[in-house]
């Protein structure tokens, strides 16, 4: 239903052609094999703990999702109505694959999992997220994270 190719032309064109920054200078940091990496999830799905403040459009802020916290308390306050939420309602892993990550750790495919994961709300101008993202990178490094999987919604 919300496959891009099924959207009305005008809506699809508006989404696809939205104004976005282009980065010519692409940093690509080297690191150890996957089996030795510590991985964090950073999502733009607007997820957070139920008791957290809901996201407000365009502030570029993030919320903390502790790895050892109760994932049944995770809710979504994303501003957009134009993506499917029924999958997320059924299974959080559809946009925040925390159980899958734990399985990969148990199988030795990744080294370990970060103490905390983090969530932004997409649909915000990217530049509003820069300060928070740079700050977040420092927090991740302090935790020993050397691999981030970014997940949209």
């Amino acid at each position: 239903m919300v496959h891009l190719h099924e959207m009305p032309d005008a809506a699809r064109n508006r989404l696809v052609n939205q104004d976005l920054p282009h980065y010519d200078d692409v940093e690509c940091v080297a690191g150890p094999p996957l089996s030795e990496r510590k991985i964090a999830i950073v999502t733009t799905a607007g997820l957070h703990k139920r008791a957290d403040k809901p996201f407000t459009h365009s502030l570029g802020e993030y919320r903390i999702i502790p790895e050892d916290g109760g994932m049944s308390e995770i809710v979504m306050s994303h501003a957009s109505t134009n993506f499917d939420r029924s999958g997320y309602q059924q299974d959080l892993n559809i946009c925040f694959p925390v159980d899958r990550l734990r399985e990969l750790k148990a199988d030795g495919k990744i080294g370990s999992i970060a103490t905390n994961h983090f969530s932004f709300m997409g649909a915000s101008p990217p530049e509003t997220q820069e300060a928070a993202a740079r700050d977040l990178a420092g927090i991740l490094k302090a935790d020993g994270v050397n691999g981030v999987i970014l997940t949209p919604v």
Binding site: Q129, R134, A137, K141, V148, I149, P152
Partner: peptide, 21 residues
């Protein structure tokens, strides 16, 4: 979301992502 990858990578952490668009 891709912009977040640039910001985090520039601080020294490898990133990857799933893209839908």
């Amino acid at each position: 979301m891709g912009a977040l990858a640039h910001y985090i990578e520039r601080e020294g952490i490898s990133t990857t992502q799933v893209s839908l668009v």
